[in-house]
Simulated scan of single mutants.
Amino acid sequence: MGTKMAPSFANIFMGNLEKEFLSRQNLKPHTWLRYIDDIFMIWTHGEANLKLFIDDINSFHHTIKFTADFSGHGVHFLDTTVTLQNGSLKTDLFNKPTNKHNYLLPSSCHPRHCTRNIPYSQALRIRRICSSEVDFDSRTKELSQHLLNRQYFRGTIENAIKKAKSKPRTETLTYKTRQTSSKRVPLVTEFHPGLPPLANIIQKNFHLLQGTERLKSVPRITCHRF
């Protein structure tokens, strides 16, 4: 699985590598976007110069080598297909052939909100990626079938898609700053569907716990992973 710091180390290394490499290039990409070690770029200097650029970056470091897919029409990048249409970029959802869409089953032993939020989070992801309403409708139709295959209720799926569609796409693309972490003391426990409603019990009896300086507010219920 690797260490928790592995992505950060990779980001730091690749950030330094790309900075040094690009600073030495006479012909630079019009756009260069990187997610860890996956790079999307727009090149405007012709295919011959692009191939020279790729050869150059593959000889820049003795162990870091890149594979490249390029096209004058469109490419896949992560979970997105980017195409050039009438001088503008269009984006659509891309699923790798190995994606089996094995979403967490609603019957799984998880807190209800975990499975309840999956249809909406997936529909919102599609809303964010698809620049065309036609593509959004097509991809959410596919999503609906995948979720039905995983025993999700049709009503839950339809409500989630409707909620996602009601959001303007520009809003879904707006970067949101995370709120500062709560100073509430966490109550860490193991989840079991047979547990009583702990949050309600603590809220009702919180006056008994306020004798300590640390418990100025109701603890946050947290279930740890096994």
Rank of each mutant, 00 (worst) to 15 (best):
N205K: 06
F191L: 03
Q203C: 07
E213A: 01
L215S: 02
I202C: 07
P196T: 13
I201S: 05
I201Q: 07
Q210A: 00
L209Q: 06
E213K: 00
A199H: 14
G194A: 11
L198S: 08
N200E: 13
V188R: 08
E190T: 11
T212Y: 04
E190V: 08
K216I: 12
H192M: 07
T189W: 06
L187K: 12
Q210V: 06
I202T: 12
K204E: 06
P197M: 10
Q203N: 12
N200D: 13
K216H: 15
H192N: 10
K204A: 05
K216C: 14
G211C: 01
E190G: 04
L209K: 03
H207P: 00
T212F: 06
P193E: 10
N200H: 10
L187C: 13
G194H: 10
P197G: 12
P193T: 11
N200K: 08
A199D: 15
G194R: 11
Q210W: 02
P197E: 11
L208I: 03
K216T: 15
P196A: 14
H207V: 04
V188H: 08
E190A: 05
I201C: 05
P193M: 09
R214H: 13
P196M: 12
L209V: 09
G194F: 08
Q210N: 04
V188N: 07
N205M: 02
Q210C: 01
P193S: 11
E190K: 07
P193A: 09
H192A: 08
P197K: 12
Q210S: 03
K204D: 04
N200L: 08
F191G: 02
Q203L: 07
P193Q: 10
V188T: 10
Q203F: 07
E190S: 02
L198H: 12
L215I: 01
I201W: 07
E213R: 00
F206Q: 03
E190N: 06
L195W: 13
G194Q: 12
A199E: 15
L187G: 08
L198W: 09
K216W: 14
L195R: 15
F206H: 04
G211F: 04
L209P: 01
T189D: 04
E213H: 02
R214T: 03
H207I: 04
L208S: 04
L208Q: 04
L195F: 14
N205F: 06
N200Y: 07
L187I: 13
G211L: 02
G211P: 00
